[in-house]
């Protein structure tokens, strides 16, 4: 099956993994007081270890998932170079949308509509890792795009 695919999966595109695309702040921060309260030194050691384990293994930046881009009618097709890319599971969907904007030359704001499985438009704050686990098909997250709204 793999050989029939339109293009090989590219490793590590510069755009998606540049530091500017990576979230500098946690997506859903806790306040300072709550952060302190939940600091490992304030928790039973078993709990602290469990949380540390989760932090290290749940969607770490080093884990990559494959996204395949599919144009909807009227949209320009992806070049073979970025038809399928590997993206860090720790990024959020916003980085995927800005990647597409850059590749298609569409400025921020209007004019680009991005869907998963030709069904729904994920929130920009949704994690790529979680989207991939829930909605992958053949181990790829299928991301389609259009210059006009679709699937309303």
């Amino acid at each position: 099956m793999a050989s029939t695919r339109p293009s090989a999966v590219r490793e590590n595109t510069d755009d998606l993994d540049s530091p500017s695309a990576a979230p500098a702040e946690p997506e859903l921060p806790l306040s300072m007081s709550t952060s302190t309260l939940l600091h490992p030194s304030n928790l039973p050691s078993t709990t602290a270890q469990a949380l540390q384990h989760i932090h290290e293994t749940l969607d770490p930046p080093t884990q990559k998932v494959t996204i395949r881009f599919q144009p909807l009618p009227g949209a320009p097709p992806p070049s073979p170079k970025w038809a399928a890319v590997k993206v860090s599971a720790s990024q959020n969907f916003e980085s995927v949308v800005s990647f597409l904007r850059k590749k298609l030359g569409v400025k921020g704001g209007n004019g680009l509509f991005v869907y998963v499985n030709k069904v729904f438009a994920p929130g920009l704050d949704e994690g790529v890792g979680g989207l991939w686990r829930c909605f992958k098909i053949d181990d790829e997250l299928k991301v389609s795009y259009s210059m006009a709204p679709a699937f309303g």
Partner: peptide, 12 residues
């Protein structure tokens, strides 16, 4: 980064 608490969202 600084030690900073956050909410992780887990779905599968």
């Amino acid at each position: 980064s600084q030690p900073q608490g956050q909410i992780r969202v887990i779905q599968s």
